[in-house]
Design a protein around this nucleic acid. Structure first.
Lengths: 135, 135
DNA sequence: AAGCTATATTCCTTGCTTGGAATATAGTTC
DNA sequence: GAACTATATTCCAAGCAAGGAATATAGCTT
């Protein structure tokens, strides 16, 4: 992957916020919506943008799409370096810290879950919890 | 400085090439032109873009404008981190390596110079050598 | 199958970025 | 001061990206 393309993915604030959350672990779209407080189209489009450029992966799980960063082994040196850099930098800017805090709160409310068919009414805004188990 | 703004500066290939060269030391516009083989407007505009956003500094020296990165002490943590990251990444991509090689060749042809009023006919494409002495 | 949920896509508008041609500016040399 | 050099700016056209409204799609539930 070309270096410029990585930076093109990073040059939008919404995308930075999405990636910052993904650095903590995989997530489904509805939880991005909740944490960022942004409309569904916006989130979905930016995730699509990142996906077509290989910065995130997406796997369907029932109704939900689980987005994740590419596996460490699958990251180019450039991508790995820039994700590490982003993580460091984001830790110092309030907007990213706030997002992570909100995500943590969501996690606590929802708790981890393995399956997909159980409903829960945890008030997350969707019927499925935030904490997605890594395969 | 906001992190996004840094990435916005980095998301254009021409600007990446300029910054990559600047990581080696200060340079005047005409040498960017020579190394990148791009028209003057293009170089000048991208340098202007970087300048207004604080990613480079510019000082006039006779007819020449010397561009440089902000002094290490003046760099925000985010900028410092990303410049370091860029330097690492650029070292692995051929276009940036080629640029550095061309710059080195220019240096050899021109040699270091302190003053500004002496002409030389070193074939650099302008009357002033490439190697600018740090103040 | 019908209705529901989560997510994606299309269409459209708006604004930004890029690049080039032409021109302007600042400084030098003669 | 006239000519010249290096660089910046203006004006314009084209392309791209972002956001929203409406709609489509995929999978679940009953």
């Amino acid at each position: 992957m070309q270096l410029v393309q990585i930076y093109q993915c990073l040059c939008d604030e919404t995308r930075l916020r999405l990636l910052n959350l993904l650095l903590r672990g995989p997530l489904c779209v509805c939880h991005f919506q909740t944490v960022l407080s942004e409309p569904q189209v916006k989130i979905s489009k930016h995730l699509g943008y990142l996906r077509t450029r290989g910065l995130v992966t997406a796997t369907r799980r029932g109704n939900w799409m689980i987005y994740d960063l590419p596996a460490a082994a699958a990251r180019s040196p450039e991508l790995a370096a820039n994700l590490a850099c982003l993580q460091d930098c984001a830790a110092e800017q309030s907007i990213f810290r706030r997002d992570l805090a909100r995500l943590t709160k969501l996690d606590l409310a929802c708790g981890p879950v393995a399956g997909v068919s159980a409903k829960n009414d945890d008030g997350c805004g969707c019927d499925q919890p935030a904490k997605i188990l890594k395969k």
